[in-house]
Design a protein around this nucleic acid. Structure first.
Length: 571
RNA sequence: AGUCCCAUGGUGUAAUGGUAGCACUACAGUUUUUGGUACUGUCUGUCUAGGUUCGAAUCCUGGUGGGACUACCA
């Protein structure tokens, strides 16, 4: 045996959740020839969001954990909504999170077999063609508390159904002309057993099979069938499919007794877990699509979107998403997870790896009146204090600096440890300076701050040991480079837009969700780090370079997540 | 109310009949050349009423509360 590979993404100890326990139990019982096979089955009708990540991290994770197989299967049974654009983005996002599929399958791969199965069901009297309009079928369905009524076509001859089913697929019928229904029980307490529709006519060409088919299977007649044909052993899905499980089992049982029966012992089992809900976040694909289509955000990868490509562009690392998913767990309780759980996971991961660079987001001039004119010194800065091997880089220092406007107060309260007249403060990696005053314009706005430096307090010198309460970041006006910074806030202003969006969820949008700061500066080193690298601007948060960054020497940064700012709360 | 599912601090999640623990949040403190990080501490919890048991968050029954199901979506 080779040495065991360590999985670095989840070193935290945790007990097995209920799905893992079920799998262990099945393994111990010797089910499915002691094999494990899962699948991630997205419909290619939109971009993947973080809720999907919770699902596929489980699907791929379970397979990896128990030496099984996990396939990516596109559930493409409704050509009206689906597109190859989505197929491509889904693959990209799964790979970004480091998950690897064994095979790529499509439900459309099984259209012929599912068709054959339907024909067999008709022959055996388990299905019939219904020619009623949709409304009539809905009316006969009853309600959860009242039984339904049989369709007048329910007991039509097998040969007739067979003939009509063929017509449904030939292209000669219009959409809605007729459907194929399973013949089960119109009085069943589970609505899904009231003769569910299993095939309908759709004339829109399919993104893979084109016009080869005109009749398409419904979810309930495709999902379990695909699972069974593929050899899936554990079909993991979200809680809302719980009511579908009896029907899933019903059809699997019929498949076992059909000409499509497997030669091995494998039989898929559906297990449901809670879907991801996040505060201040909309996870509905339909609503996310609306945001994109109406231009309320700048595309699926807008950094405010909860899509995986949105988080990627904002600068969230794949590791932090794994960490978050690992912490929230899988249960049957419909939880509403606080967004701070995600943000804390991002900060924890980025803190270990983000290069510390200087940036000033809201600049004001700081002039050292006693610093030799024209002198420039190179100051050494540690790249990452959390990483001993992170190395150093240098920052040019001069008497003409930028500092953060918030770091100065003319009349400061006692607990203000930053710059204020008469008090000493340290310039990070440089000298201790004493503030001597400031200059204001006609409106009373501060235009420049003055200070004097102590030449013996440069970092490394003996006098630099002197205790000063505050440490400020700075940039040399002559040497820094202009930048634009985008600060992202929550897209929605209410905690639970899902629950509160009774009329129009758009009214719940936060108008301040994007703030663009144009007069920003960063040190030259920040520009050299490039897209994809993580940076922490001193005390301001974590940033990444936006892919849109242009070439005119202006860098555009996205703030991934802010740091804790206890000062703002202490006031 | 028909069937099914769920209920542990503010949030999420452990404890699988035997000391209710962890993470996040909030608050307080220590360290710190980032008011960051790290570390320490504090606050706060088994929905309710019965039953079984030496012993119940856990098993049983009733209640309460929340959710799913009534698409030719998945």
């Amino acid at each position: 045996m080779t040495e065991k590979m360590t999985n670095e993404t989840s070193t935290e100890k945790r007990s097995l959740h209920f799905i893992e326990q079920a799998i262990v139990a099945d393994l111990e019982a010797g089910k499915n020839g002691k094999k494990i096979q899962t699948r991630f089955p997205p419909e290619p009708n939109g971009y993947l969001h973080i809720g999907h990540a919770k699902a596929f991290i489980l699907d791929f994770g379970i397979a990896a954990q128990y030496g099984g197989t996990c396939n990516l299967r596109f559930d493409d049974t409704n050509p009206e909504k689906e597109d190859t654009e989505y197929v491509d983005s889904i693959k990209e996002d799964i790979e970004w999170l480091g998950c690897k599929w064994d095979n790529i399958f499509y439900a459309s791969d099984y259209f012929q077999q599912i068709w054959d199965f339907a024909v067999e069901l008709i022959r055996k009297g388990h299905a019939y063609v219904d020619e009623q309009p949709a409304q009539a079928i809905a009316d006969q369905k009853g309600t959860p508390t009242e039984p339904g009524q049989d369709s007048p076509y329910r007991n039509r001859p097998v040969e007739e159904s067979l003939e009509l089913f063929d017509k449904m697929n030939s292209g000669e019928l219009e959409e809605g002309a007729m459907v194929l229904r399973a013949k089960i029980d119109m009085t069943h307490s589970n609505m899904h057993f009231r003769d569910p529709i299993i095939y309908r006519i759709i004339k829109t060409p399919h993104h893979r099979t084109g016009t080869a088919w005109n009749a398409y299977p419904m979810y309930d007649f495709a999902h379990g069938q695909s699972d069974y044909l593929e050899g899936v052993t554990h079909s993991l899905c979200t809680l809302e499919f719980e009511v579908h499980r009896p029907l899933y089992d019903y059809f699997v049982e019929l498949m076992k007794n059909s000409t499509l029966a497997r030669t091995d012992e494998r039989q898929p089992r559906q297990i449901e877990f809670n879907r991801l809900n996040l505060t201040y976040t909309v996870m509905s694909k339909r609503k996310l699509l609306t945001l994109v289509q109406e231009g309320l955000v700048n595309g699926w990868d807008d950094p405010r979107m909860p899509t995986l490509c949105g988080y990627r562009r904002r600068g969230y690392s794949p590791e932090s998403i794994h960490l978050f998913i690992d912490r929230i767990g899988y249960t049957k309780y419909e939880a509403l997870n606080d967004i701070s759980l995600l943000e804390s996971a991002v900060r924890e991961d980025l803190n270990k790896r983000a290069t510390r660079v200087s940036g000033v987001l809201n600049p004001v001039k700081l002039t050292i009146t006693n610093y030799p004119e024209g002198q420039v010194e190179m100051m050494e800065a540690v790249n990452n204090p959390e990483d001993e091997n992170g190395g150093v880089h240098s920052i040019p220092f001069s008497g003409q600096l930028w500092m953060e406007r918030e770091d100065f107060m003319e009349d400061a309260p006692k607990k203000f440890f930053r710059m204020t007249p008469g008090k000493e403060v340290r310039l990070k990696n440089a000298y201790i300076v004493k503030c001597t005053g400031c200059e204001k314009d006609a409106n009373g706005e501060i235009t420049e701050i003055f200070c004097e430096y102590d030449p013996n307090t440069k970092s490394g010198m003996p006098d630099s040991k002197r205790k000063v309460k505050g440490t400020l970041h700075w940039l040399s006006r002559e040497h820094c480079i202009p930048a634009e910074v985008r600060l992202y806030d929550r897209l929605f202003k209410v905690e639970n837009p899902g629950a509160e969006a009774s009329e129009d969820f758009r009214t719940l949008l936060n108008p301040d969700s994007l703030k663009v700061l144009k007069e920003c500066y960063v040190e030259p080193f920040a520009g050299s780090l490039g897209i994809g690298s993580y940076m922490q601007f001193q005390r301001l948060g974590y940033f990444t370079l936006d892919p849109d960054t242009n070439k005119e020497g202006r860098l555009i940064f996205n703030r991934t997540v802010g740091l804790r700012d206890t000062w703002s709360k202490k006031k």
